[in-house]
Lab assay of single mutants.
Amino acid sequence: AEIMKKTDFDKVASEYTKIGTISTTGEMSPLDAREDLIKKADEKGADVVVLTSGQTENKIHGTADIYKKK
């Protein structure tokens, strides 16, 4: 799966169907969080990951919607 910015995804959204939401939390780098989200998306058969939230304090927390091409 590839990560797309919401603004970029909005241009092609009609080509995809939302298949779920994924999240990651833990003591990790932003890059590790990104890789974890991609891994989870791949496991669910998603083609595209669109980040919906991200937070960093002591731990990273990120959520994303996942989509499959129609």
Rank of each mutant, 00 (worst) to 15 (best):
A1C: 13
A1K: 02
A1W: 04
A1S: 04
A1T: 06
E2I: 15
E2T: 15
I3F: 09
I3Q: 01
M4S: 02
M4P: 02
K5F: 14
K5L: 15
K6M: 07
K6I: 07
K6Q: 14
K6H: 07
K6T: 05
K6C: 07
K6N: 06
T7G: 10
T7N: 09
T7E: 15
T7Y: 08
D8R: 03
D8Q: 08
F9D: 01
F9L: 03
F9E: 01
D10N: 07
D10F: 06
D10E: 12
D10V: 07
K11S: 06
K11A: 09
K11P: 05
V12R: 04
V12E: 02
V12K: 04
A13E: 07
A13C: 11
A13S: 10
A13Y: 06
A13F: 07
S14C: 15
S14K: 10
E15V: 06
E15L: 13
E15H: 12
E15M: 14
Y16E: 01
Y16A: 01
Y16Q: 01
Y16W: 01
Y16I: 04
T17E: 13
T17Y: 15
T17K: 08
K18N: 05
K18L: 13
K18V: 03
K18D: 02
I19H: 00
I19M: 07
I19A: 02
G20D: 04
G20Q: 01
T21L: 04
T21K: 05
T21E: 13
T21R: 07
T21V: 09
I22C: 04
I22K: 00
I22G: 00
S23M: 12
S23C: 14
S23Q: 10
T24W: 14
T24Q: 05
T25S: 13
G26V: 12
G26I: 14
G26K: 11
E27F: 14
E27R: 09
M28I: 06
M28E: 05
M28T: 08
M28Q: 07
S29P: 07
S29R: 06
S29C: 11
S29I: 05
P30A: 14
P30C: 15
P30D: 14
P30H: 06
P30Y: 14
L31N: 13
L31H: 13
L31I: 10
A33F: 11
A33C: 10
A33R: 09
A33Y: 09
A33V: 09
A33L: 10
A33S: 06
A33P: 05
R34M: 15
R34A: 08
E35F: 10
E35G: 06
E35Y: 10
E35I: 14
E35T: 08
E35H: 13
E35A: 14
D36C: 12
L37V: 03
L37K: 01
L37M: 06
L37D: 00
L37I: 05
I38H: 02
I38D: 00
I38T: 04
I38S: 03
K39D: 04
K39G: 04
K39F: 05
K40S: 05
K40M: 08
A41H: 00
D42S: 15
D42I: 15
E43G: 05
E43L: 11
E43N: 06
K44E: 07
K44L: 15
K44G: 04
K44D: 03
K44I: 10
G45R: 05
G45P: 00
A46D: 00
A46K: 00
A46Q: 00
D47Q: 06
V48A: 05
V48Q: 01
V48H: 00
V48I: 11
V49D: 01
V49C: 05
V49K: 00
V49N: 02
V50I: 06
T52G: 11
T52V: 08
S53E: 14
G54W: 15
G54A: 13
G54E: 15
G54R: 07
G54N: 12
Q55K: 10
Q55A: 12
Q55F: 15
Q55C: 14
Q55Y: 15
Q55N: 14
T56K: 08
T56P: 10
T56V: 10
T56H: 14
E57M: 13
E57H: 08
E57Q: 10
N58F: 11
K59I: 12
K59P: 14
K59F: 15
K59Q: 11
I60M: 12
I60S: 09
I60T: 11
I60Y: 13
H61N: 09
H61Q: 12
H61W: 14
H61C: 14
G62H: 15
G62Q: 15
G62L: 15
T63S: 09
T63W: 08
T63K: 09
T63Y: 09
T63F: 10
A64L: 06
A64C: 06
A64W: 09
A64F: 14
D65G: 02
D65Q: 04
D65S: 05
I66F: 08
Y67T: 01
Y67C: 02
Y67F: 07
K68S: 04
K68M: 06
K69P: 02
K69W: 05
K69L: 08
K70S: 07
K70W: 05
K70G: 06
